[in-house]
Design a binder for these strands. Structure first.
Lengths: 146, 146
DNA sequence: TCATCATCTTGTAATGATTACAAAGTCACA
DNA sequence: TGTGACTTTGTAATCATTACAAGATGATGA
């Protein structure tokens, strides 16, 4: 039974790729599935390590290629929040990203970006908006006070 | 006369460094001066190439070191606007950065960041805020329409 | 004037993320 | 079963940044 359920789920991922004219190869479906189920803004390395068990022949180059295909299709967006490693986020609603400098965790927060910008950017065609905050999250903050 | 004027100007930069407990070496003063006079969000390479004429022995490592000292002292802030090279900005008022994907230029724009975020980030200590937009600037836009 | 000490600068080597590339694999279609 | 288009894979190359050790600088004190 588990297999059937899995097939159905995977098919929905495959469909998502077909909708964007991306051939749903095994690897691509798995990577998309991973991104949807792990919305923790993973790095290439995290994705690679996590899926290696399922697909032992997986290559890091494939992860890079696939993510770039997804970015091109606007399925995911890259985050460069003052980090040497790019992180990847399944695009949903516009939101900001906070990175804790101690634990390294990344937290989403709501931002109504369109409301407060506009005047200055008449005539600009905007294709991506990113709001990055850095600092210390509550958990690490109480930790360091001890 | 030019020399004297220069000395006075340089001294004001040196003072700025002393105020932050940074020893105002020749190289550091020059790099600070360059950043103040060229607020175009330069890369390490641009700074290095520009100052090489004045200080032929200048090393790229020094530029990196100095910029990191400045960042530590909050004199400048690094920009990572989906670029593989970090850019450096003399911190003034809070503002957003727009990068044109065609000409590569970076434009500042006004943003009242504090107004529209807050609720979600209770208990977070925020040390840096960045708003990055990507797209096509008006000049490149009219260019491509031809 | 000279020695000392701390700090800065410099060149080079190392690191590490990302991309380039060519060979091998996969899959649909005739 | 063969062909062709497209993917995957491993490795080599690229490039920004950092690490490190040796040399330069500059202030201080005898």
């Amino acid at each position: 039974m588990k297999e059937v359920v899995n097939m159905v789920i995977i098919d929905s991922f495959a469909q998502k790729l077909l909708d964007r004219n991306i051939i749903p190869s095994h690897q691509r479906v798995l990577i998309l599935k991973y991104l949807v189920e792990n919305q923790c803004h993973p790095t290439v390395d995290q994705i690679f390590s996590a899926l290696r068990g399922e697909v032992p022949t997986l290559s890091k180059a494939t992860v890079y290629n696939t993510l770039n295909v997804f970015i091109e299709a606007k399925l995911v967006r890259p985050l460069s929040i003052e980090d040497n490693e790019t992180r990847y986020d399944i695009v949903t609603v516009d939101h900001g990203h906070f990175k804790c400098s101690i634990c390294g965790g990344i937290v989403n927060f709501a931002v109504d970006i369109d409301r407060f910008v506009a005047a200055d950017l008449q005539g600009f065609r905007i294709t991506a908006k990113n709001v990055y905050f850095n600092g210390i999250c509550p958990a690490c903050h109480t930790q360091t006070e001890k």
